[in-house]
């Protein structure tokens, strides 16, 4: 008896939203620190983060009169920003709630507990130090759920959809983070002095710093960091690793021809030798192309497994894949909405 298409879709989304919540919390944690480290005139602000989440337009809509606190609120606590930590967890919780008959019940308990904790903490007026704790709890909680599923769920098709969602989201987030770093440095000679701090922060936001040092054993340079995060085959959040993981999961699913061939395109893009010779502007263009390809892969996954040809309505690509439409960031699942 095969997995229901609808259930497969919700598992896929729960993985994407958990990954999104986790990475967003990692970013917020690192950004908080970075803000403290850098001298005032070189402040990066939260603008970059808002760019990462693709939510600049929405941000301006929701906060026409921004203050020092609004960017972080938008990014972490805002229910109206579908990529905020809170909203991502709410989506993940709702997706798991509606697949409770399939996923192990501990996973539901974990995500429910995590969501309740985060919601309560965010509703309270929290100090900076306390917020750091919230982000750590989010990272731990998401890791715990991943671990629970890896160790207590049959590694059947349902689990493969979890892996697919997670590695696709991860590729997306890693390329976005690289892109923001590149965009931040581009045309800001005044920031050149803080180059190192910025690339260190990028590594830290992906929990890559320690592994990077072990592997490279020399000072930090933008070239090295970019190469590592794009091409490393052994670090789980590097693009090359994530794509391999994505391929391994897709390989275990039926009717996977189209999706695998699209993934092949992405891997060839990554394999082009000149990727590493690109300047920051070139890298920015490359990432745009890669994200378009990711968006197409996502659409293929929808069409192959979740809404096979019987469905007549064309769905817009969901997630924040297309940069052209940063506001339509929510999943398009039929009945799942974020609860309060």
């Amino acid at each position: 008896m095969s997995l229901l298409s609808r259930v497969a879709e919700r598992i896929y989304w729960s993985a994407r939203y958990l990954e999104r919540a986790e990475t967003t919390s990692r970013l917020a944690r690192v950004y908080g620190n970075l803000l403290l480290d850098l001298p005032r005139q070189a402040r990066l602000g939260w603008d970059g983060l808002i760019e990462i989440s693709g939510g600049a337009t929405l941000y301006r809509e929701l906060y026409p009169n921004p203050t020092a606190d609004t960017p972080e609120r938008f990014f972490v606590a805002d229910r109206n920003n579908p990529s905020s930590v809170r909203a991502s967890l709410a989506f993940a919780r709702e997706s798991i709630r509606t697949t409770r008959d399939i996923v192990p019940s501990e996973a539901w308990r974990s995500v429910n507990e995590l969501y309740m904790y985060v919601s309560q903490e965010l509703d309270a007026d929290t100090s900076h130090r306390r917020r750091y704790g919230i982000h750590s709890r989010v990272v731990e909680g998401c890791q715990q759920i991943s671990g629970l599923l890896a160790d207590t769920m049959s590694h059947d098709a349902g689990y493969q959809f979890f892996r697919v969602g997670r590695s696709l989201e991860r590729t997306d987030m890693t390329t976005r983070i690289l892109d923001v770093a590149a965009a931040t440095l581009l045309g800001r000679e005044d920031l050149a002095r803080f180059d190192n701090s910025l690339w260190m922060a990028v590594l830290q936001s992906l929990s890559a710093y320690q592994m990077y040092r072990q592997k490279l054993r020399r000072g930090i340079s933008s070239q090295d960091v970019i190469r590592y995060l794009l091409k490393d085959e052994q670090f789980p959040r590097a693009v090359a690793f994530s794509l391999r993981e994505l391929g391994a999961a897709l390989a275990m699913l039926p009717h996977n021809g189209d999706a695998l061939s699209k993934l092949g395109d992405l891997r060839r893009m990554l394999a082009r030798p000149k990727v590493l010779e690109l300047d920051l502007a070139g890298l920015h263009q490359w990432i745009d192309d890669a994200q378009l390809a990711l968006g197409e892969l996502h659409t293929l996954i929808l069409a192959t497994w979740f809404r096979p040809s019987t469905s007549t309505t064309a769905e817009p690509p969901a997630g924040r894949i297309t940069k052209a439409a940063p506001v339509s960031q929510t999943q398009t699942q039929s009945q799942v909405q974020p609860p309060a």
Partner: peptide, 9 residues
Amino acid sequence: YVRTIRGLE
């Protein structure tokens, strides 16, 4: 029939 990732069952 139910819609699954392998088609109708």
